[in-house]
Design a protein around this nucleic acid. Structure first.
Lengths: 131, 131
DNA sequence: ATTCCTCTACTACCGCAGTAGTTGTTGCCG
DNA sequence: CGGCAACAACTACTGCGGTAGTAGAGGAAT
């Protein structure tokens, strides 16, 4: 059920704020997105719509609504990235990595570094834990 | 100018068909997207709208319109991926790769393989070209 | 030539993200 | 107490992707 596939720009930005802060009042979200020059009511409206969809929840603190993200970053990332990979790269995630390399967005060296780091983590994992 | 940022699902699918075939009549596109169960007119409408936006062009072949993609796959991929990375990963492409690994969508071994292949290609390149 | 078929053009409609005004409520401050 | 400031609720509008029906134009078949 928690599979928010279609997220717009603003909604993502709002979620990011909530993920960062944990909880945030409307005014705080608005403040964090000040560069967008949006009306406060716009943020409030968006938050309400997002609550309708189950993306966020709110509790009341005096007159204020304090919002909280319901969906996990991981889940959202997985869905959005999976979607893109499906649409653009025939469902092959490696094609995406390939693209990043060819487009010069990442470097081989970075890949190496990541590879080494993950491999090390995996070794540690295998040794330390039972399962 | 060729910076199509907001592409829907169907539009991407249509572009993919055009990229694959080079040129395609409306009916051909429709055929390739048969699994979507769309009316032929839907495809035609979409193609016209996409032409308005400069994504595709057409020439006439008798009665038929034969469409051709104007935008390059590379450009579209770059934009869409760049957008996603910006929205979801703070503009850090490596964070995306990291996500793919952690989410189990790609394996270390695949990364290794890609790394090796690209490195080899680069060596070949360096020998042949100036830079 | 008339009928029929095949295509495109025009038009319309739905849903949703995004944007914001207006209105209503409520607490605070002088 | 009366009014201002803050804040949420309701409402509305725009733009666009997606979807398709209907109309019109040009060839094909008889």
């Amino acid at each position: 059920m928690e599979a928010p596939r279609n997220l717009g720009d603003l909604q993502l930005a709002i979620l990011r704020v909530l993920w960062d802060r944990g909880d945030a009042a409307v005014a705080e979200v608005h403040g964090d997105l000040a560069d967008r020059q949006l009306a406060l009511t716009t943020i409030a409206t968006m938050l309400r719509k997002m609550e309708d969809k189950g993306l966020v929840s709110h509790r009341e603190n005096g007159r204020q609504f304090v919002y909280h993200a319901v969906v996990e970053p991981d889940q959202v990332q997985r869905n959005l990235v999976g979607d893109l990979v499906g649409k653009l790269f025939d469902g092959d995630p490696m094609a995406l990595v390939n693209h990043l390399l060819r487009a010069g967005e990442i470097e081989l060296a970075e890949l190496d570094e990541l590879r080494a780091r993950v491999a090390a983590a995996e070794r540690r994992e295998t040794r330390g834990k039972k399962s």
